[in-house]
Amino acid sequence: MNVRRQELEQKIEEMEAALAKLKQQLNLAVEEEQHESIDHLDEHLEEMDHKWENIREFWPIVVKEFRERFGKK
């Protein structure tokens, strides 16, 4: 086996190990973010109590879009 090939294989192994480590770090960061989000569960539950306000907010957007698509130009 020539030196060049050995060097390349060695580099690939190192990069793969580094990539696996990065993926693991990313997973941990994502999970940390998820735990933080779960800590705000109370606020998300409150959001449910305002669902009719969501419709009030949604309605003018729909009306505007309707006018844009079907209104006289």
Partner: peptide, 12 residues
């Protein structure tokens, strides 16, 4: 229907 209405809160 309930969670669909909740999702409308993100419409903007």
């Amino acid at each position: 229907i309930t969670n669909t209405i909740v999702s409308l809160g993100h419409v903007r």
